[in-house]
Amino acid sequence: MRVTICIGSACHLKGSREIISQLQSLVKEKRLEGQVDLNGSFCSGHCVSGVCVTLDGEVYSLKPEDTKEFFEKEIAGRL
Rank of each mutant, 00 (worst) to 15 (best):
P64Q: 06
I7V: 15
G34M: 07
Q35D: 11
K63L: 10
F42W: 14
L55A: 05
V3G: 01
A76M: 13
G50D: 02
V53S: 01
F71T: 01
A10W: 05
Q22N: 05
R17C: 06
C6P: 04
Q35E: 15
V48I: 15
V27Y: 00
F71C: 05
K73F: 10
V36W: 01
C43F: 09
E69H: 11
S25I: 07
S25D: 13
G77V: 05
G50S: 12
H12K: 12
V59W: 08
F70P: 00
V59G: 09
V51E: 00
G34I: 07
K73A: 11
C43W: 14
V27N: 03
A76W: 09
D66N: 12
E33W: 07
V36E: 02
F71Q: 01
E29F: 09
L13T: 12
L26K: 02
R2K: 15
G45Q: 09
R2D: 07
R2S: 13
D66T: 08
A76K: 12
G50W: 00
A76V: 10
V48D: 15
G45P: 02
F70C: 01
G77M: 06
S49Y: 13
P64Y: 01
D56P: 08
Q22F: 06
Q22A: 09
G40K: 14
H12Q: 14
I19C: 02
F71M: 07
R31W: 08
K73P: 04
L23E: 00
M1A: 12
E69S: 09
K14C: 06
C47W: 03
K30V: 05
T67N: 06
H46M: 13
H46V: 11
I7Y: 04
V51W: 02
V53G: 01
L38F: 08
D37P: 03
E33T: 09
E33R: 08
G57T: 08
K73R: 15
V27L: 07
K63W: 08
C11H: 00
S44A: 15
C11W: 00
E69V: 07
A76T: 08
Q22S: 09
S49L: 14
P64K: 03
G57H: 11
R31N: 14
Q35I: 11
